[in-house]
Design a protein around this nucleic acid. Sequence first.
DNA 1: TATACATGTAAGAAAGTTCTTACACATGAA
DNA 2: TTCATGTGTAAGAACTTTCTTACATGTATA
Lengths: 107, 107
Amino acid sequence: MTQREPTGDELVELFAALANPVRLRIIATLRGGRDYVSNLARVIGVSRPLLHMHLQRLEAAGVVVGSLELSDDGKAMKYFELADLDLHLTPELIATAAASLTGKENK
Amino acid sequence: MTQREPTGDELVELFAALANPVRLRIIATLRGGRDYVSNLARVIGVSRPLLHMHLQRLEAAGVVVGSLELSDDGKAMKYFELADLDLHLTPELIATAAASLTGKENK
DNA sequence: TATACATGTAAGAAAGTTCTTACACATGAA
DNA sequence: TTCATGTGTAAGAACTTTCTTACATGTATA
């Protein structure tokens, strides 16, 4: 999402992923380092299932990356960290991306 | 939306405004110059009431600016043009904005 | 007057988003 | 075994977004 120019569909998904206060807080929190789902939920102050859903949305958009790991005491822990995100947002970028919008078969 | 750093609430509104294929097409089209509602609807291929709604959303987010004018033959024409939009989108920007999220009284 | 063009808005259907509650499973320690 | 911790997911309510259709207003021209 940061390297090559995003397609129109990717850009819509990225903006949709970022258009939510809880998800912006997740990103802000993850700037302090990777964290796992239950702890993130506590820190941010939302329920774990809700946070799980928000993380899925962010991961689908390529904003965060998750990896399931086993802790020393054998628990399955899903850690999330920020992916690269560095986009120069201008009308030019949008116009380029818009040219590749499919707008049909998308869901 | 391009000059000062956006607040968290403004950023959510901006992303929400951009998270739609029709609205990306509107922005792409307006790069070619200002245009009025009925003509934009024809060019983009959506109904005029629908386009009207999308333009309202873009204007509320500060992405476009509209001005009602009288044409030579006396018709009321509402012209829209792009506002400045130049944002370096990074986790840092998001983290800064997230700190100002209200998350309460906002609808 | 009727047509063509412009504006705005309101009602309602359909679909998507957000959130809670509840369930299921697994491991380690008391 | 029971409790505390972690994982995931499914059902349903409440709300928002998207879109169509229909109505109402106006001016200029045929």
